[in-house]
Amino acid sequence: MVVDDAEIDRFMAEKIMTKYDFAEEVITVESAMDALDYLNEHKDQPENLPCLIFLDINMPEMTGFDFLDAYAKLADIIKRKCIIVMLSSSMLQEDHDLALSSPYVCDFIGKPLNPAKLSVIKASCLCDGKSIYTSSIKMQQS
């Protein structure tokens, strides 16, 4: 699921993920409210819940952080299924730190999305296509 108010970003995300076989299905919503509505509507059909949620921060009316607050109150079944990846053009350390302090956020990716970043996400947040219930990113040492 891609949550972004910019149409071009939703379009590009869908195109890239489809092209590189990152996801079978991409749901795009243009606001955080729509995203919450979708999740609540489908909480009884876990198969329709997204594995990954790409969340923009700077959106009108309800920001990405507002979404995270509302998300925390959702049913456990939803939270167990979904992993959130922040996708933003913000370069503020504060935004980065705040996002990662949420137990539901797995990674913080700068826009634009590209195949290289998708593979990183695949490696860090998904394991054999299954979600890992994780509280924070694990830093890789080299």
């Binding site: 910019a6 970003d9 590009m12 995300a13 700077n58 053009s89 826009k111 634009p112 590209n114």
Partner: peptide
């Protein structure tokens, strides 16, 4: 930056 990122994407 946001539109730039979109353009780059």
């Amino acid at each position: 930056r946001a539109p730039l990122a979109s353009i780059l994407g």
